[in-house]
Design a protein around this nucleic acid. Structure first.
Lengths: 262, 262
DNA sequence: GGCTTTGCTTCCGCCCAGTGGAAGTCCGTT
DNA sequence: AACGGACTTCCACTGGGCGGAAGCAAAGCC
């Protein structure tokens, strides 16, 4: 840009994007000062750029002066194509309709799971996952389902880090986790028992539809379908496994067909 | 910015935003040249800025070189708060569960309706509305439901324009439309018969929850709930009206409660 | 096979938009 | 009334951004 930039080499655009990037699930509402801190930009710069973003309705300024993501960005985001979600949604709805339980779809993004869709109703257990949010892999059903089908080197590197422990039930010992992943592969689905949230249990199955079309070669996971129930009703989980597996398989089939068509 | 700008006075940020703004439902995938045309920017400028946006994953470049909205923007968009949608969703799900028909929620934005949520399953009629998309008001159920409760001056100005006519069944005569809006107010809901899409009919009810809390004063519409069925099953529409009205009332109540709490 | 078109990428000299420190304002708190 | 934190405005300095033009590559045409 121009002028006495404190950090020359950084483009104006990158600064504007940095402002948008300052927002995340844990920081959905920020004051000017907070944005300046989180981006490392000068307050007056943030003031000017955020003002421009607000004018375009990329940001919105609440009555209390805090900024938040504006509706125009939501609208734009809806244009991001996601063939997987498109193909999967009707099946998630079906699974929800048949069970009445919270159902969601997640993909792996880096070392986390990113929730891309969720179907829930009035009697659903309140859970952490929201579409667009991320959670670590090892304490979530969808995370374990995905991790179990990743290549060995990936799993090894995932386990060779200190792992977060959101509840006392979270499994963080590499050995025990590795054994559990083997079991997931053996039975075709993963389960959790209050490992992410006290009060919730889940089952999840991978959507095996990606990867090398070399014949004889196994498909790789492109996503996972999960279903969550209150701990008080853990005993109903087994009953949900069969429909869960069916739906995961249907999504995989539809997805492969959609990809082949394209 | 700097240099021999063809259009001085336009900020860098506004150019970057213009590039994002070049994308809409009808133009979800654009080439560099198309973006340049739609924004009025020089090709080399678009090339540079779009490259930067791509690097940040605000945009994504397909195998064919076309740009599209990237997943990062989708994620950001999910952070845009929408208390209305949050409150309404479980009820939409309920309505869908009870009827098995396509259900959606829309708000007015300018002279159009903006669809903010949609619940559908496998057997749903394929319809035009997608979350994030816009349609004119007069040929849609949600549009008529909203329009009917707008103040007179707004309706007058809406009707005093040439109105689009997506199908031969679309009502565009101001007089006839005004009479229909009166009927909507009288019965509390709107219906359409192939006015937007051949093959689909709908019913929609306003969510009356906004506006001046002056007592005795009627609530203003903040949204509308719509339900769509295939024309072959128009005869089932009347059966859907009662649950539709119930759900609209429940959403209105929950929304007023949520607003009062905040 | 060569010629045209279309779309993309790279280059570079010019120069004004962008920068951020500092001073000013506003508001709730002590 | 003085203080502190958050926001807004101002302005002199300067290097990041601009876009025309030339170069490149693939697809379509004669």
């Amino acid at each position: 840009m121009a002028g006495g930039a404190r950090d020359p080499g950084r483009s104006v655009t990158s600064r504007a994007l940095a402002i948008l990037g300052a927002f995340d699930a844990r920081h959905a509402r920020l004051t000017l000062t907070e944005i300046a801190e989180r981006t490392g930009l000068a307050l007056s710069t943030v003031h000017r750029l955020a003002g421009e973003l607000e004018e375009w309705r990329a940001l919105r300024r609440g009555a209390d002066g805090r900024f938040q993501i504006g509706r125009r960005l939501w609208e734009l985001g809806q244009l991001a194509p996601d063939p997987l979600q498109e193909v999967a949604h009707p099946w998630l709805q079906e699974l929800f309709g048949g069970t009445g339980e919270n159902v969601h779809l997640a993909v792996r993004d880096g070392l986390e799971v990113l929730y891309v869709d969720k179907v829930y109703g009035k009697r659903a257990v309140p859970i952490l996952s929201r579409t667009g949010s991320r959670l670590p892999m090892h304490p979530t059903g969808v995370g374990k389902a995905l991790l179990a089908y990743e290549p060995g080197w990936f799993v090894t590197s995932y386990l060779s880090r200190p792992l977060e422990r959101p509840t006392p039930h979270t499994i963080t010992e590499p050995g025990r986790l590795a054994r559990e992943l083997a079991q997931v592969r053996a039975q075709g689905y993963a389960t959790t028992h209050e490992e992410m949230t006290l009060g919730s249990c889940s089952a999840a199955a991978p959507v095996l539809a990606g990867g090398p079309p070399a014949d004889g070669q196994a498909y790789r996971p492109v996503a996972a379908v999960g279903i969550v129930v209150s701990s008080r009703r853990v005993r109903e989980l087994p009953r949900l496994v069969e429909p869960l597996l069916t739906v995961a398989a249907r999504i995989a089939a539809d997805y492969r067909a959609a990809v082949a068509r394209a």
